[in-house]
Design a protein around this nucleic acid. Structure first.
Lengths: 338, 338
DNA sequence: GGAGGCTGTCGAAGCGCTTCGACAGCCTAT
DNA sequence: ATAGGCTGTCGAAGCGCTTCGACAGCCTCC
């Protein structure tokens, strides 16, 4: 293992000079710099991460806490995680992957050990038990998601309330009066995951304003669960012509079931989904949808965090504006039979 | 930030004693141990990761390289990643998330900087460019996947060749003579990803042995691509009654298309999938499938790596035996019209 | 009753890096 | 010509931990 000292000797300078060449924190003459850089290359030197962290109290690592449950919005999580990792690298950081399993203890451990310089939390609940700790340790952190109380916190998220409103508006504009919402799995609501409740809030508020009738039903993913849920909905509100689907693993089952029942999309019923772009495009009917900008969220979270490290920017809540893309799954409501 | 020295002072012992209490590398009297442990708790002490890494040359971190592309087998990747992270924690390790983006440089960087004690590589290609480096730096590593040349490497993977054979056998047993394979996207084969080719190998070899006619077609995920692929297959081999699907994002489209064309599953055609359990169960027809044991793979990879750290176990290739679960999507071949 | 062996604890020497203060040498302004 | 200010480099002091050798005290065994 090559050390700083060896590079210094090879280049005929002192260790501190090499360090300054690396960090750029003091001016170095062009000649010296070149000699040092050459030695670094020739010896294949890589600074030792531990020594660096110890001396500088900075690990250049960002911790990312992802939810343990793999039962929902997996592609979104993955996309965020990858965006976080790649963005972090462009800023010189690596990413430490923590699963929700440890819960609040992970926050304590990371903050206490200096393992990471800061953390990004995903899957934040409205009243998340990690938040008190976060505030108390004043560990730099960014949340992806929105808790009930955001004071002293930095958050990045899609504006799910506006997303809900947008879906309703789209259907209302096309003349739909009876809309059903296929929500996330019941467990998601029980955990008070912010995005689910905020979407619902947006849907309901706007539906009321526009005079639509709205029926919300949570739904596990998969074909069987969707079949049950759909049957119940159509039983209760036979006149339903608009669907808003939030659970991406319910999308394809819903389309299949509608087809099976002879309800054509978009002629008889319209479907609007809240899902990643890819799901919308690859579905059996190209879906009118509000995209979940997973990459953008991951990227922004890292940038906010890096800004904090550098003393720039304070606590802030960034809500990304939703965008609805019209595709083949939505159209005008069928003319009502008198 | 509480330090070892402070704990030592608080407990009235020397720093080294505290260190030995923590590591258990020397015997400590019960009384002393208790006093130290109490001080640790009371002061809320967490060892500093950097200092520890520097002094011991062990970071207690495992690097996990995941593929950058999010276009394929996402749930599998995610499940593996989470299994790796949780298993690693039970062994006292944290996981550093590296994306494929950096390529071989990441190997160099991690090995050179002592950032991680070892690494787990996913999405290994048959002739992966990271392998020479791995052998050369003799960084402890475990591959999830199987390259062409495994000398000096430790690998964990599903036995995809046996998987392919198993699928063919299942269909052959039920009297199917013409089988079509819906493969992964063309790009996957172009990159010479091991698992895709090995599955194909297994399929072909066994089909030849059993006298089946086998048609293999790569296929992008999604409905449109599947429609084109299916049309071509049925055009070329109208008598096809058995399908093996490897690309999980082609599963649901295939089922929808078959339904649409009036081909009943499993009465007219049988479908066998290679996919995670969850996909098989949630599909619109419960799928006969060979499960991809993602969790098991992640867990095993970590355990192999930890064994290496501790000087146990050498290079080894662990191939997990595939298991085929019969569900509702496969049955006897229809009686041929004379 | 002394040799020898354990057990439990301590002190000190680093691990490889960053960073602070010092200062040599030179340039500019008086 | 001299004071003062830059620039570029160096030496040394840690950062918080692990680990090695030393050794005090005690027990055991002939």
């Amino acid at each position: 293992m090559v050390t700083l000292a060896e590079v210094a000797q090879h280049a005929g300078v002192s260790a501190s000079t090499v360090s300054y060449v690396l960090s750029g924190k003091r001016s170095i003459s062009a000649g010296t710099r070149q000699r040092v850089e050459r030695s670094i290359r020739e010896l294949g030197y890589h600074p030792n991460a531990g020594a660096r962290a110890l001396a500088s109290s900075r690990s250049n690592i960002i911790a990312l806490m992802i939810p343990l449950r793999t039962d929902m919005y997996v592609p979104v999580m993955m996309e965020i995680a990858i965006a976080v990792a790649t963005t972090a690298r462009t800023h010189g950081y690596d990413v430490l992957l923590l699963t929700g399993e440890e819960g609040p203890d992970a926050v304590r451990r990371v903050a206490g050990s200096g393992l990471a310089d800061g953390m990004i939390l995903m899957d934040v609940e409205l009243d998340d038990e990690r938040l008190p700790l976060l505030r108390q340790t004043d560990q730099p952190a960014v949340l992806i998601g929105l808790p009930a109380d955001t004071t002293g916190l930095t958050c990045v998220d899609l504006d799910f309330k506006a997303t809900g409103a947008l879906c309703v508006e789209h259907l209302a504009q096309r003349g739909h009066r009876d809309v059903a919402v296929i929500g996330e799995a019941p467990a998601v609501y029980e955990r008070h995951t912010g995005f689910a409740e905020r979407t619902l809030d947006g849907l309901r508020t706007r539906a009321r304003e526009l005079g639509l009738r709205l029926l919300h039903r949570p739904c596990e993913g998969g074909y069987d669960a969707m079949a049950v849920t759909l049957a119940r909905i159509l039983d209760e509100r036979p006149g339903t012509t608009g669907f808003v689907v939030q659970n991406e693993s319910a999308v394809e089952p819903l389309l299949a079931l509608l087809r099976q029942q002879g309800r054509a999309v978009p002629e008889d019923v319209s479907v609007v989904a809240v899902c990643p772009e890819q799901v919308a495009v690859q579905a059996s009917v190209r879906l009118t949808s509000v995209a979940i900008p997973a990459q953008e969220m991951g990227r922004r979270a890292v940038e906010q965090l890096v800004d904090k490290f550098d003393g720039r920017g304070g606590d802030e809540v960034v809500l990304l504006a939703p965008e609805l893309t019209v595709r083949a799954s939505s159209g005008p409501a069928p003319v009502r039979e008198p």
